[in-house]
Nucleic acid binder design. Structure first.
Lengths: 337, 337
DNA sequence: TTGAAAGCGGTACCAG
DNA sequence: CTGGTACCGCTTTCAA
């Protein structure tokens, strides 16, 4: 790569303004003691040279870069887009810069972390779940505040913000039952996803509490195509009439398979519930009953954890749970009283 | 905030290893001349201290931060998510870090740019169109390579990568005509969007070339709700049977309005064409005829422009055009021979 | 209020 | 191959 262009430095400005370099620095420091006349001269020279103080030397002095890394694992799902945008906006409003880090799995995390460390990032927020205690401990060794979403594993420097996945699973079971469901099924996400597992756990618990048996479970991959395929597999074996899906994309794929391929009606023949409340869920063609994960709350809690750890240091086992709001729509029937 | 000496320095490592600080630096520089023994001692000490060279002093020396800012204006549209993810992945593969900057309009751009400059970002990629020559010139004054998408305005340091919007508009006109369309309409994006305007220009030109009159135009906002509302307004005035939409979200909203609210059939009564080929366009419920903007090509061209400007400096008026691939699906009828 | 000088943590060049 | 030293650009003492 090319040498790198030279920027005007405070020394250049000082020379042009006929003052000391310190005076220039002070002119750009709010509340520093500079005479109005000196500041005027400095600002004039700065404008002429297009000078703006570099933040790099500051980082060297303070070890605080103002950089917060946000790790995402695929933006295909509109829900992650929404969350990412909120993170970015709020972090910038709080005076931070956002380093976007796309990764494929949590195993590449420690490699990536090495880089982030060399940039002296102040904290890391991960939309990707940390899967094992080993990884969590490895991350913790970097002594940087890390907040992960929908992870049950924590460590000294690794905290978590979870949606109330279990609670939502129970609500789904109860609602489907009240609306007349009899043959229950769960279309899961990837096997290793803690969120998908927790939603299933809650669904199971809810059914059990109602004296109902185990739901049938089909493993999928959090995608539309996966949902379509999972629904096909489900019905190839035996029909179901009350399906809870690991997320909205899966639910939408399942709905299309059920209506277009199997020729069944929703909600008359089959009821479907999703998770996330992505924009498409509300579209006329789907009108999907789902859970609003409260991305705003998720982001607020995550950033609050970051702040807390930055100020007070490590905090083993910190987990915040954000309520999921149930949104009944037309993909489920009305409850019978 | 606590500054805290969180990081071990090369001096710390040198002391522990009983060598000079220079030796530590060399041990971490590929191809530097260090004896195996010295390197071993250094690495042992570095491991013990959790040392990793900071990149900050390097930035000071070279004026190259490795940071590339990516500006996005809303991730609601899945297309932007796909583009952003590609940018991020490719930039990281090329050894850069990605600074994510969400902005509302191009007018906030120069404020944001001040910050980016203090971080010594190497280049800026913007998914947001630059709207006026004034803004382009203001941006150019920062003397940082800037590549913007779907912008017709360029300047010394501002280049652009455009989808072939006009060409696609013509293709849409021809296809709708060949499939028996008679009453043409365009559901536009925001009035100031160059991409939306170019697509309309091409659509108009295509119709004119076929000896057909002006399409009716309804202004919208690139969203699903906007598309639904626009379709309602269009039909409230008079029916249409061949509708080209500024993007897929608008098209999907229009389709739902046409089918669910107006009770018309697609494609028998009304044909619809979109733009972007977002995932939802291929879903069974829509099966939308559209144009693939070739996000991969867009990203490759944009990054190539960045590289070119970084190496050769300003390049007034550089514009790259990426072909859009037409994808006929079920929202248009079959062409009559 | 002002200027001189130290120091942050690396890289690169020097002499040995 | 090795250690000493200058240097990047800023903030922050310290003395004047």
């Amino acid at each position: 790569m090319t040498p790198g262009k030279r920027y005007a430095s405070s020394t250049d400005v000082a020379r042009l303004a006929g003052v000391s370099q310190s005076a220039v620095s002070r002119s750009f420091t709010p509340g520093a003691s500079v005479s109005a006349e000196t500041r005027r001269k400095v600002m004039a020279a700065a404008d002429a040279l297009g000078f703006r103080p570099s933040i790099i030397p500051q980082i060297m002095l303070t070890n605080r870069s103002g950089l917060v890394a946000v790790i995402v694992g695929g933006l295909r799902n509109a829900f992650y887009g929404a969350v990412l945008e909120r993170f970015a906006t709020r972090l910038r409003d709080a005076g931070h810069q956002v380093l976007l880090v796309p990764v494929e799995s949590d195993y590449s995390l420690d490699t990536v972390l090495e880089e982030l460390r060399s940039y002296r990032v102040d904290a890391i927020v991960s939309g990707l779940a940390v899967l094992s205690q080993e990884v969590a401990d490895a991350l913790s060794a970097f002594r940087i505040p890390i907040v992960s979403c929908n992870t049950s594993v924590t460590s000294d420097w690794v905290a978590s913000v979870d949606s109330d996945n279990r609670g939502a699973g129970r609500v789904a079971a109860e609602w489907l039952r009240r609306c007349g469901g009899t043959r229950f099924a769960y279309l899961a996400g990837p096997e290793e996803s803690p969120a998908s597992r927790d939603r299933l756990d809650g669904f199971r618990a809810g059914l059990a509490a109602l004296g109902l048996g185990e739901p049938r479970v089909v493993i999928g991959d959090y995608s539309y195509d996966g949902g379509r395929a999972a629904a096909a597999r489900l019905f190839a074996e035996a029909p179901a009439d009350a399906i809870f899906c690991a997320n909205d994309l899966v639910a939408l794929g399942a709905m299309d398979a059920i209506r277009k391929r199997l020729g069944l009606r929703i909600p008359e023949d089959v009821m479907v519930i999703g998770y996330d409340d992505i924009p498409s869920a509300a579209w006329d063609s789907y009108d999907l009953t789902t859970f609003d994960q409260d991305p705003e709350g998720l982001v607020v809690q995550a950033l609050d954890l970051v702040r807390e750890m930055s100020e007070n240091g490590p905090a083993r086992g910190r987990v915040r749970v954000v309520e999921a709001r149930f949104i009944p729509r037309g993909s489920t029937r009305n409850p019978t009283p």
